[in-house]
Amino acid sequence: MNLRMYISTFATALLAMSCSNGMTNSKSVTLVTHDSFAISAPVLKAFERESGIDVRVLKGGDAGEVLNQAILTKGAPLGDVLFGVDNTFLARALDANIFVPHKALGLDDVSPALRIDPTHHATPIDWGDVCINTDITWFAKRGIDPPKNLADLLDPRFRGLLVVENPATSSPGLAFLLATIASSDKHGWQNYWKRLRDNDVLVVDGWEQAYNTEFSGSAGKGSRPLVVSYATSPAAEVMFADPPITVAPTGNIDTTCFRQIEMAGILKGAKHPKEARALIDFLVSEQFQKDVPTSMFVYPARSNTPLPEAFEQFAPPPTASGSLPPSEISANRDEWIERWTEIVLR
Protein backbone atom coordinates (compact mmCIF):
# COMPACT_ATOMS: atom_id res chain seq x y z
CA MET A 1 0.00 0.00 0.00
CA ASN A 2 1.45 3.38 -0.88
CA LEU A 3 0.75 6.90 0.26
CA ARG A 4 -1.81 7.58 -2.40
CA MET A 5 -3.79 4.48 -1.54
CA TYR A 6 -3.58 5.39 2.11
CA ILE A 7 -5.12 8.77 1.48
CA SER A 8 -7.73 7.53 -0.96
CA THR A 9 -8.87 4.84 1.48
CA PHE A 10 -9.37 7.53 4.04
CA ALA A 11 -11.32 9.67 1.61
CA THR A 12 -13.54 6.74 0.67
CA ALA A 13 -14.27 6.04 4.30
CA LEU A 14 -15.21 9.65 4.90
CA LEU A 15 -17.47 9.54 1.90
CA ALA A 16 -19.13 6.39 3.15
CA MET A 17 -19.64 8.07 6.47
CA SER A 18 -21.32 11.11 5.00
CA CYS A 19 -23.87 9.06 3.11
CA SER A 20 -26.82 8.41 5.36
CA ASN A 21 -29.89 6.36 4.70
CA GLY A 22 -32.22 8.07 2.31
CA MET A 23 -35.61 9.08 3.58
CA THR A 24 -38.65 8.41 1.46
CA ASN A 25 -41.11 10.97 2.74
CA SER A 26 -40.72 14.70 2.54
CA LYS A 27 -41.84 15.23 6.13
CA SER A 28 -40.03 13.81 9.10
CA VAL A 29 -40.09 13.77 12.87
CA THR A 30 -37.45 12.73 15.37
CA LEU A 31 -38.34 10.77 18.46
CA VAL A 32 -35.84 10.96 21.31
CA THR A 33 -36.17 8.10 23.73
CA HIS A 34 -34.48 5.62 26.04
CA ASP A 35 -32.90 2.30 25.16
CA SER A 36 -35.95 0.25 26.13
CA PHE A 37 -38.23 1.92 23.61
CA ALA A 38 -39.40 -0.48 20.95
CA ILE A 39 -42.01 -0.65 18.26
CA SER A 40 -42.84 -3.40 15.81
CA ALA A 41 -41.62 -2.60 12.34
CA PRO A 42 -45.01 -3.12 10.59
CA VAL A 43 -46.78 -0.77 13.02
CA LEU A 44 -44.21 1.95 12.45
CA LYS A 45 -44.23 1.43 8.66
CA ALA A 46 -47.99 1.71 8.63
CA PHE A 47 -47.86 5.04 10.44
CA GLU A 48 -45.19 6.39 8.11
CA ARG A 49 -47.19 5.33 5.07
CA GLU A 50 -50.49 6.76 6.25
CA SER A 51 -49.16 10.04 7.60
CA GLY A 52 -46.40 10.64 5.08
CA ILE A 53 -44.04 11.34 7.96
CA ASP A 54 -40.71 9.53 8.38
CA VAL A 55 -39.91 8.70 11.96
CA ARG A 56 -36.33 8.85 13.14
CA VAL A 57 -35.61 7.28 16.50
CA LEU A 58 -32.72 8.53 18.64
CA LYS A 59 -31.75 6.65 21.76
CA GLY A 60 -29.70 8.19 24.49
CA GLY A 61 -29.32 5.77 27.38
CA ASP A 62 -31.74 5.01 30.19
CA ALA A 63 -34.80 7.07 31.07
CA GLY A 64 -32.96 9.33 33.51
CA GLU A 65 -30.11 10.04 31.09
CA VAL A 66 -32.47 10.84 28.25
CA LEU A 67 -34.38 13.32 30.37
CA ASN A 68 -31.16 14.94 31.55
CA GLN A 69 -29.96 15.20 27.98
CA ALA A 70 -33.21 16.91 27.09
CA ILE A 71 -32.82 19.36 29.96
CA LEU A 72 -29.21 20.02 28.96
CA THR A 73 -30.17 20.73 25.35
CA LYS A 74 -33.22 22.81 26.15
CA GLY A 75 -33.82 25.31 23.37
CA ALA A 76 -31.79 23.27 20.84
CA PRO A 77 -33.40 19.87 21.28
CA LEU A 78 -32.08 16.70 19.68
CA GLY A 79 -35.47 15.90 18.23
CA ASP A 80 -39.12 16.78 18.27
CA VAL A 81 -40.73 14.35 20.70
CA LEU A 82 -39.39 12.89 23.91
CA PHE A 83 -40.79 9.55 25.04
CA GLY A 84 -39.93 7.95 28.35
CA VAL A 85 -40.51 10.43 31.16
CA ASP A 86 -42.17 8.50 33.96
CA ASN A 87 -43.95 9.68 37.08
CA THR A 88 -40.74 9.56 39.08
CA PHE A 89 -39.17 12.07 36.69
CA LEU A 90 -42.26 14.04 35.64
CA ALA A 91 -41.82 16.87 38.10
CA ARG A 92 -38.21 17.35 37.05
CA ALA A 93 -39.23 17.57 33.41
CA LEU A 94 -42.07 20.01 34.14
CA ASP A 95 -39.85 22.16 36.37
CA ALA A 96 -37.22 22.34 33.68
CA ASN A 97 -39.96 23.44 31.27
CA ILE A 98 -38.78 21.37 28.32
CA PHE A 99 -42.21 20.53 26.87
CA VAL A 100 -44.88 22.47 25.04
CA PRO A 101 -48.46 21.42 25.81
CA HIS A 102 -50.53 19.31 23.45
CA LYS A 103 -53.77 17.56 24.23
CA ALA A 104 -53.49 14.34 22.30
CA LEU A 105 -56.28 13.07 20.11
CA GLY A 106 -57.70 10.10 22.00
CA LEU A 107 -56.49 11.18 25.42
CA ASP A 108 -60.04 10.83 26.64
CA ASP A 109 -59.77 7.08 26.14
CA VAL A 110 -56.84 6.92 28.56
CA SER A 111 -57.86 5.95 32.05
CA PRO A 112 -58.09 9.04 34.27
CA ALA A 113 -55.78 7.55 36.90
CA LEU A 114 -52.93 7.76 34.42
CA ARG A 115 -53.58 11.35 33.39
CA ILE A 116 -51.37 12.87 36.05
CA ASP A 117 -50.40 16.03 34.16
CA PRO A 118 -53.52 18.18 33.82
CA THR A 119 -51.54 20.78 31.82
CA HIS A 120 -51.01 18.29 28.97
CA HIS A 121 -47.31 18.92 28.67
CA ALA A 122 -46.78 15.19 29.10
CA THR A 123 -49.10 12.61 27.61
CA PRO A 124 -49.37 9.16 29.28
CA ILE A 125 -48.52 6.36 26.83
CA ASP A 126 -48.06 3.24 28.90
CA TRP A 127 -47.65 2.05 32.44
CA GLY A 128 -45.89 -0.77 34.14
CA ASP A 129 -45.48 -2.00 37.65
CA VAL A 130 -42.32 -2.91 39.40
CA CYS A 131 -43.02 -5.88 41.66
CA ILE A 132 -41.18 -8.62 43.43
CA ASN A 133 -41.07 -11.71 41.21
CA THR A 134 -40.93 -15.15 42.80
CA ASP A 135 -39.41 -18.34 41.49
CA ILE A 136 -42.48 -20.56 41.82
CA THR A 137 -40.61 -23.82 41.33
CA TRP A 138 -38.04 -22.94 43.96
CA PHE A 139 -40.66 -22.39 46.64
CA ALA A 140 -42.76 -25.37 45.50
CA LYS A 141 -39.77 -27.71 45.70
CA ARG A 142 -39.10 -26.69 49.27
CA GLY A 143 -42.73 -26.65 50.29
CA ILE A 144 -42.53 -23.05 51.49
CA ASP A 145 -45.14 -20.42 50.72
CA PRO A 146 -43.60 -17.40 49.04
CA PRO A 147 -43.78 -14.08 50.94
CA LYS A 148 -47.10 -12.26 50.57
CA ASN A 149 -46.15 -8.67 51.26
CA LEU A 150 -43.30 -6.32 52.08
CA ALA A 151 -43.39 -7.15 55.79
CA ASP A 152 -42.91 -10.86 55.06
CA LEU A 153 -39.56 -10.10 53.49
CA LEU A 154 -38.18 -9.32 56.93
CA ASP A 155 -39.02 -12.83 58.08
CA PRO A 156 -35.91 -14.93 58.82
CA ARG A 157 -37.49 -17.71 56.70
CA PHE A 158 -36.78 -15.54 53.64
CA ARG A 159 -33.30 -14.57 54.71
CA GLY A 160 -30.84 -14.24 51.85
CA LEU A 161 -33.44 -14.87 49.17
CA LEU A 162 -34.07 -11.37 47.77
CA VAL A 163 -32.04 -9.49 45.19
CA VAL A 164 -32.82 -5.81 44.52
CA GLU A 165 -31.38 -3.11 42.31
CA ASN A 166 -29.51 -0.03 43.46
CA PRO A 167 -32.01 2.89 43.28
CA ALA A 168 -29.12 5.20 42.43
CA THR A 169 -28.40 3.42 39.16
CA SER A 170 -31.54 1.48 38.29
CA SER A 171 -35.07 2.53 37.51
CA PRO A 172 -36.78 -0.60 38.98
CA GLY A 173 -34.47 -0.21 41.97
CA LEU A 174 -35.79 3.28 42.53
CA ALA A 175 -39.37 2.12 42.00
CA PHE A 176 -39.02 -0.54 44.66
CA LEU A 177 -37.54 1.97 47.10
CA LEU A 178 -40.54 4.19 46.38
CA ALA A 179 -42.85 1.22 46.96
CA THR A 180 -41.40 0.79 50.43
CA ILE A 181 -41.68 4.52 51.07
CA ALA A 182 -45.26 4.66 49.81
CA SER A 183 -46.31 1.80 52.03
CA SER A 184 -45.00 3.21 55.30
CA ASP A 185 -45.19 6.41 57.27
CA LYS A 186 -42.66 9.23 57.07
CA HIS A 187 -39.51 7.55 58.34
CA GLY A 188 -40.70 3.98 58.60
CA TRP A 189 -39.01 3.01 55.36
CA GLN A 190 -35.55 3.64 56.77
CA ASN A 191 -36.17 1.24 59.57
CA TYR A 192 -37.60 -1.23 57.06
CA TRP A 193 -34.44 -1.18 54.96
CA LYS A 194 -32.22 -1.56 58.00
CA ARG A 195 -34.07 -4.76 58.81
CA LEU A 196 -34.08 -5.85 55.17
CA ARG A 197 -30.33 -5.42 55.11
CA ASP A 198 -30.02 -7.47 58.29
CA ASN A 199 -32.05 -10.12 56.52
CA ASP A 200 -29.26 -10.31 53.91
CA VAL A 201 -30.78 -8.53 50.94
CA LEU A 202 -28.44 -8.48 47.91
CA VAL A 203 -28.01 -5.21 46.04
CA VAL A 204 -26.74 -5.12 42.46
CA ASP A 205 -26.47 -2.17 40.13
CA GLY A 206 -28.81 -3.07 37.32
CA TRP A 207 -31.84 -5.09 36.42
CA GLU A 208 -29.88 -7.21 33.92
CA GLN A 209 -27.61 -8.48 36.60
CA ALA A 210 -30.33 -8.96 39.19
CA TYR A 211 -32.66 -10.83 36.88
CA ASN A 212 -30.30 -12.66 34.52
CA THR A 213 -27.51 -13.48 36.91
CA GLU A 214 -28.75 -13.60 40.50
CA PHE A 215 -32.39 -14.64 40.14
CA SER A 216 -32.95 -18.39 40.21
CA GLY A 217 -36.18 -18.33 38.21
CA SER A 218 -34.79 -17.21 34.86
CA ALA A 219 -32.21 -18.26 32.30
CA GLY A 220 -29.20 -17.19 34.35
CA LYS A 221 -29.95 -19.82 37.03
CA GLY A 222 -28.75 -17.71 39.92
CA SER A 223 -29.25 -18.51 43.57
CA ARG A 224 -31.98 -16.12 44.79
CA PRO A 225 -35.65 -16.89 44.22
CA LEU A 226 -36.93 -13.35 44.88
CA VAL A 227 -36.11 -10.41 42.61
CA VAL A 228 -37.30 -6.88 42.02
CA SER A 229 -38.53 -6.96 38.43
CA TYR A 230 -41.60 -6.06 36.41
CA ALA A 231 -45.15 -7.25 36.75
CA THR A 232 -44.97 -8.40 33.14
CA SER A 233 -41.83 -10.49 33.56
CA PRO A 234 -43.77 -13.76 34.19
CA ALA A 235 -45.56 -13.29 30.88
CA ALA A 236 -42.25 -12.75 29.13
CA GLU A 237 -40.90 -15.96 30.65
CA VAL A 238 -43.72 -17.81 28.89
CA MET A 239 -43.58 -15.93 25.60
CA PHE A 240 -39.83 -16.34 25.29
CA ALA A 241 -39.51 -19.75 26.81
CA ASP A 242 -37.25 -22.19 25.10
CA PRO A 243 -38.56 -24.90 24.78
CA PRO A 244 -42.12 -23.52 24.93
CA ILE A 245 -43.98 -23.85 28.23
CA THR A 246 -47.59 -23.32 29.23
CA VAL A 247 -47.20 -22.38 32.88
CA ALA A 248 -45.22 -19.38 34.08
CA PRO A 249 -42.21 -20.41 36.19
CA THR A 250 -42.36 -17.08 38.03
CA GLY A 251 -45.05 -14.98 39.64
CA ASN A 252 -45.70 -11.54 41.14
CA ILE A 253 -46.25 -10.49 44.73
CA ASP A 254 -49.04 -8.00 43.99
CA THR A 255 -48.70 -6.06 47.21
CA THR A 256 -45.08 -5.10 46.56
CA CYS A 257 -45.71 -3.18 43.37
CA PHE A 258 -45.03 0.41 42.46
CA ARG A 259 -46.62 2.00 39.43
CA GLN A 260 -44.55 3.69 36.73
CA ILE A 261 -46.43 5.73 34.13
CA GLU A 262 -44.47 6.54 31.01
CA MET A 263 -45.19 9.74 29.16
CA ALA A 264 -44.26 11.56 26.00
CA GLY A 265 -44.10 15.28 25.22
CA ILE A 266 -43.26 17.69 22.45
CA LEU A 267 -39.88 19.29 23.04
CA LYS A 268 -39.68 23.06 23.20
CA GLY A 269 -37.88 24.33 20.12
CA ALA A 270 -38.87 21.30 18.03
CA LYS A 271 -38.17 21.82 14.34
CA HIS A 272 -41.28 19.88 13.27
CA PRO A 273 -44.05 20.79 15.71
CA LYS A 274 -46.87 19.71 13.43
CA GLU A 275 -45.40 16.28 12.82
CA ALA A 276 -44.60 16.04 16.52
CA ARG A 277 -48.28 16.47 17.39
CA ALA A 278 -49.15 13.77 14.88
CA LEU A 279 -46.60 11.45 16.47
CA ILE A 280 -47.99 11.96 19.99
CA ASP A 281 -51.48 11.27 18.65
CA PHE A 282 -50.13 8.10 17.07
CA LEU A 283 -48.57 6.96 20.33
CA VAL A 284 -51.98 7.18 21.99
CA SER A 285 -53.75 5.57 19.01
CA GLU A 286 -55.12 2.04 19.02
CA GLN A 287 -52.52 0.69 16.58
CA PHE A 288 -49.58 1.70 18.71
CA GLN A 289 -51.25 0.88 22.03
CA LYS A 290 -51.95 -2.68 20.86
CA ASP A 291 -48.25 -3.09 20.07
CA VAL A 292 -47.08 -1.81 23.46
CA PRO A 293 -47.34 -5.02 25.54
CA THR A 294 -45.32 -7.25 23.25
CA SER A 295 -42.69 -4.76 22.18
CA MET A 296 -42.00 -3.04 25.50
CA PHE A 297 -43.53 -5.38 28.11
CA VAL A 298 -45.69 -2.73 29.71
CA TYR A 299 -49.42 -2.15 29.85
CA PRO A 300 -51.06 0.20 27.34
CA ALA A 301 -52.43 3.47 28.70
CA ARG A 302 -55.53 3.40 26.51
CA SER A 303 -58.40 1.66 28.28
CA ASN A 304 -59.90 -1.41 26.70
CA THR A 305 -56.81 -2.18 24.62
CA PRO A 306 -56.74 -5.96 24.24
CA LEU A 307 -53.84 -7.67 26.02
CA PRO A 308 -51.96 -10.67 24.61
CA GLU A 309 -53.03 -14.00 26.02
CA ALA A 310 -49.86 -14.55 28.05
CA PHE A 311 -50.47 -11.21 29.75
CA GLU A 312 -54.05 -12.05 30.61
CA GLN A 313 -52.97 -15.38 31.99
CA PHE A 314 -49.66 -14.75 33.75
CA ALA A 315 -49.37 -11.00 34.14
CA PRO A 316 -52.75 -9.46 34.75
CA PRO A 317 -52.40 -5.77 35.57
CA PRO A 318 -51.81 -5.40 39.32
CA THR A 319 -54.58 -3.56 41.04
CA ALA A 320 -53.18 -2.44 44.37
CA SER A 321 -49.97 -0.74 43.30
CA GLY A 322 -48.38 1.93 45.40
CA SER A 323 -47.78 5.40 44.10
CA LEU A 324 -46.50 8.78 45.22
CA PRO A 325 -47.18 12.26 43.87
CA PRO A 326 -44.53 13.21 41.24
CA SER A 327 -43.77 16.48 43.04
CA GLU A 328 -43.00 14.63 46.24
CA ILE A 329 -40.72 12.19 44.41
CA SER A 330 -38.95 15.01 42.67
CA ALA A 331 -38.44 16.98 45.87
CA ASN A 332 -37.07 14.07 47.88
CA ARG A 333 -35.48 11.70 45.40
CA ASP A 334 -31.84 12.67 45.95
CA GLU A 335 -32.21 12.74 49.71
CA TRP A 336 -33.99 9.37 49.76
CA ILE A 337 -31.32 7.77 47.62
CA GLU A 338 -28.61 9.30 49.77
CA ARG A 339 -30.23 8.00 52.96
CA TRP A 340 -30.81 4.60 51.38
CA THR A 341 -27.14 4.39 50.31
CA GLU A 342 -26.01 5.18 53.83
CA ILE A 343 -28.33 2.61 55.35
CA VAL A 344 -27.84 -0.25 52.93
CA LEU A 345 -24.42 0.12 51.33
CA ARG A 346 -22.16 1.82 53.83
Partner: peptide, 17 residues
Protein backbone atom coordinates in the same frame (compact mmCIF):
# COMPACT_ATOMS: atom_id res chain seq x y z
CA UNK B 1 -22.75 -4.83 21.72
CA UNK B 2 -25.85 -2.67 22.00
CA UNK B 3 -27.98 -5.56 20.76
CA UNK B 4 -26.42 -7.78 23.41
CA UNK B 5 -27.18 -5.16 26.02
CA UNK B 6 -30.78 -4.91 24.88
CA UNK B 7 -31.22 -8.68 24.76
CA UNK B 8 -29.87 -8.94 28.29
CA UNK B 9 -32.31 -6.20 29.25
CA UNK B 10 -35.27 -8.48 28.67
CA UNK B 11 -36.57 -11.42 30.63
CA UNK B 12 -36.88 -14.89 29.15
CA UNK B 13 -34.65 -17.85 28.35
CA UNK B 14 -34.78 -17.13 24.63
CA UNK B 15 -33.45 -13.60 25.07
CA UNK B 16 -30.69 -14.82 27.34
CA UNK B 17 -29.59 -17.52 24.90
Amino acid sequence: PVVIFRLLGRPGQEMYS
